[in-house]
Design a protein around this nucleic acid. Sequence first.
DNA 1: CTAAACCCTTGACTATGGTCCAGAGTCAAG
DNA 2: CTTGACTCTGGACCATAGTCAAGGGTTTAG
Lengths: 133, 133
Amino acid sequence: MESMGIGAVAKAAGVGIDTVRYYERAGLVAPKGRLSSGYRRYSELEVSRLRFIRRAQSLGFSLKEIRELLALSSSRNVASVKRKAEAKLADVDRRLTELKRIRAGLSSLVEACPGHGLPESCPILQALGGESP
Amino acid sequence: MESMGIGAVAKAAGVGIDTVRYYERAGLVAPKGRLSSGYRRYSELEVSRLRFIRRAQSLGFSLKEIRELLALSSSRNVASVKRKAEAKLADVDRRLTELKRIRAGLSSLVEACPGHGLPESCPILQALGGESP
DNA sequence: CTAAACCCTTGACTATGGTCCAGAGTCAAG
DNA sequence: CTTGACTCTGGACCATAGTCAAGGGTTTAG
């Protein structure tokens, strides 16, 4: 498989054709070349790049951040790539901490609710109606 | 301060006036009442509600989810309130699991990257460019 | 009373990350 | 050569979560 069309590259990377073109508009992937007809031609390199994008997205990077990451990877600046990943990790940790806090609050509310009786006996309603949970 | 206008409630909750009206359209907050002129009037209750929305949002809840959360408070059925809170807790747990997965992926990548040298030595670029776990 | 500050509605516009469609052109198999 | 699959461009459309502007009316302080 020397080179492939947009349908093949999309299928190989597990994304939609429109998504490939969307990523191209967003400056994330470019075809290896074009036929005289205008048809885009891709190689395995672009498949890897598309998979990189998907993987990075699943790790919580926005397309803008991924574009920066890709730019850095071609500038061969390993230190910058690491710094960006570290910043993202810190962001994830912050979310994790806050989510754990709300989990604890919600959990104690659920445990304290008898599940029957008057609304006054339900701490969930008390918490939502009155002060913040 | 018996009652306040939209500007005051927005300021007290730390959001924009347009945002308050947007939340009203989205069914998240309603003014306590209106003047004959049509001006919205709010009490401290709405300030709490707005603050709750902001906090829940910062924890990664969408406005749709927050609306569901808030709907719990207007239900008079304690059992159903408890069930919904439990479902929301399960939601939070799923989020937590996903975030932990993201954290683990990022963390191992960051730890394995030397922060200098050739891109070939950077596992952030290598791992993301290669296969998926 | 006047003027500043405030508020009203409607509707357009922003960014993100796509998805879909029309109408036309191109490619590959039979 | 014909047919069906594929691809092209451009633009519309979706949801989410706002933000801003136009062109009014209202409230309040001096």
